[in-house]
Design a protein around this nucleic acid. Structure first.
Lengths: 150, 150
DNA sequence: CATTCAAAGTTCCCTGAGGGAACCCCGAGT
DNA sequence: ACTCGGGGTTCCCTCAGGGAACTTTGAATG
């Protein structure tokens, strides 16, 4: 994404951005998530330059978010989410909710999510891992943690 | 963020990225969230170029995520989250959880969040708005919505 | 009144990243 | 032997980010 190196900052947001914050990376993850696993598919769907797509895929593989799997005797590869990558989709799901809420307008959400557990069309909400109550920006106080900068 | 215009894509992720996906924008939102509201504070804390900081702040204000408030008779301004912007912090909170889980390493999380409702140090989890059960990447099926591309 | 000061930008140049198109490599099929 | 198609690589060009210097505004100070 950046000249400035976000990966070394003492901030989990900056570090996460270092992995998936470059332009196109979130959209690549979205496509892989919904089953577009091959270079040509991704390139055609996104309209991204082949050079940049190569760079992004390598970056995501290097960071353990995607894995590269051969699918043919010829040198052909598919990209799949690792566990680390699947976990990262949480960020995208929250972006979807925000975009649906604030940007979709009259037309409504472009895509819907049906939850396996209840079978309904739904969206995500943020809850406290401990008590299960809603947990949003105004529901927390920020404190220094063990990995804080010296 | 990009040459390519993400804002017109029929995808809430792309549209959200159009608002806050440019380099530095999430970190600016983080700083404003935790109370760094002024230009000089942001510039000093982030080490961002003044030119880019100006561009990002204008972009975020234009999209209704931040608002610009005078705080002096002189031309001095503070930036504050709007309701739309506060809601966007959800995305950052999920980034924090992912970074804490996968990138923090031995040192542990750099920052901790204490939840007002229960008083405990905690983190966020994604739940279905409807049934309250966990809702992650593998728990949903994707379907076309009303705002899908023609 | 003239000078200083600090916040909040603006302007300039330089470098490097993204876009686009052309090219390359490799194994399979015919 | 020749073609085909997926998965890249290479090249050039433009534009965005980094960095530093400069400007503007009104208040405070001597």
């Amino acid at each position: 994404m950046q000249r400035t190196d976000f990966g070394t900052m003492a901030c989990s947001i900056a570090r996460t951005l270092d992995v998936m914050g470059e332009p196109w990376s979130p959209l690549i993850l979205r496509d892989v998530w919904v089953g577009m696993n091959r270079f040509e598919q991704l390139q055609a769907d996104l309209g991204i330059s082949r050079k940049v797509l190569t760079e992004r895929l390598n970056h995501l593989v290097d960071h353990g978010v995607l894995e590269r799997r051969p699918y043919d005797r010829r040198p052909r590869y598919e990209y799949h989410l690792t566990e680390k990558g699947t976990d990262l989709i949480d960020v995208l799901m929250v972006m979807v909710r925000w975009g649906d809420t604030w940007l979709a307008g009259e037309a409504g959400p472009p895509v819907l999510y049906r939850h396996h557990a209840c079978g309904e069309i739904s969206s995500v909400d943020l809850r406290c891992t401990g008590c299960g109550e809603p947990m949003h920006a105004d529901d927390v106080d920020v404190e220094a943690g063990p990995g804080a900068a010296a």
